[in-house]
Amino acid sequence: MAAVPGITLNNGAQIPQLGFGTFQIPPEETRATTLAALEAGYRHIDTAEMYGNEKEVGQAVRDSGLARADVFVTSKLNNGAHAYDDALEAFDRTMEELGLEHLDLFLIHWPLPDKGDFVETWRAMEEIYRSGRAKSIGVSNFQPHHLRRLLESSVVVPAVNQIEVHPYLTQDSVRAFGAEHDIATEAWSPIAQGKVLDDPVIARIAQRVGKSTAQVTLRWHLQRGDIVFPKSATRKRIEENFDLFDFELTEGDIGEISALNRDERTGPDPDRFNG
């Protein structure tokens, strides 16, 4: 089984660069699917209160037989809980659902520019971090101007920013801002909900290296330095998405795939989305 490379976050914590995403996996399928991912070698599981499957993710981690220290678990604050006290209560709910003693990473799910104040929300996140119940804290779907405001008003620098990234939305400016401030980038929707899988450029590279277009796309993410967590509900695809460590893309391949950028989102625009 290939060893997944780790990335050191700005607080010294180690996060596996390849993880397993549980977005859109129904709760009744989540335990079995997450167990399949852990059996395939994944040691990083991403969930959220919004997904409605935290309980099943926690059950899978407990049932896996793996040491808790060997599985990195992320969850996210729900959009209706941005007020300080609401955020603390929401974190308590997440921990109760997961049934775990600590969370490895807790994120603000969306900045929600027209609803409340994410700086106040971040104060609650800092309190959670100080308690030790979340080993790292970060944000999701934040743009540079959101991050800049947070950095000006806060003590703890977010460990990660989880954003939509794929070959049709390379997010170079957001990634560069994160790198400048030692905020790791995590990529959600890494294959653009499947839209990139028929791209002729990626297909040509995949044929040359003897891999699928999904594997080539995920390898592109890894070699750019992003943390990525593909999602699948089938064991075969779960295993295929993990099989990324016996080949490398050339610099030319990376450049060709990056040049496919269209600034095309599959999800909401963080500057307009208000939950």
Rank of each mutant, 00 (worst) to 15 (best):
A203Q: 15
R93D: 15
T30M: 04
L151W: 03
A124F: 12
W220M: 09
I254T: 15
H146L: 01
T266E: 08
R204H: 10
M1N: 13
I163C: 09
S64N: 00
R62N: 13
F142D: 07
Y42A: 13
R68G: 06
T30A: 05
E152R: 04
V209C: 08
E39H: 04
L66I: 11
Q171C: 01
E29R: 03
A69Q: 15
S64G: 05
H44Y: 06
P190Q: 13
N274Q: 07
G275C: 00
V209G: 03
P268Y: 06
A40V: 02
Q223M: 11
F177S: 05
Q24P: 10
L88I: 07
P158S: 12
L100H: 09
I191Q: 05
P144S: 10
V201R: 03
I202P: 10
V228F: 12
V139C: 04
F273A: 03
P230K: 08
R62H: 14
G41P: 00
M50V: 15
P158F: 00
A192Y: 11
E256D: 07
L100K: 01
L150Y: 01
R204M: 06
G255R: 15
E96Q: 13
H102I: 10
D117H: 01
G178K: 07
D253R: 04
Q14C: 15
E28K: 11
G52W: 06
P27L: 07
A37F: 00
Y84G: 02
L66S: 09
E127W: 02
Q223V: 13
S136C: 15
R149G: 11
P268H: 08
I108D: 06
S258H: 08
F23D: 11
G52E: 05
A67L: 10
I183P: 00
R224L: 03
Y42L: 07
H145E: 08
G99F: 08
P230T: 12
H166Q: 00
R149D: 01
T30V: 01
H109T: 12
G58C: 07
Y129R: 15
E248S: 11
T213W: 05
F247V: 12
R235W: 00
S64P: 01
S258M: 10
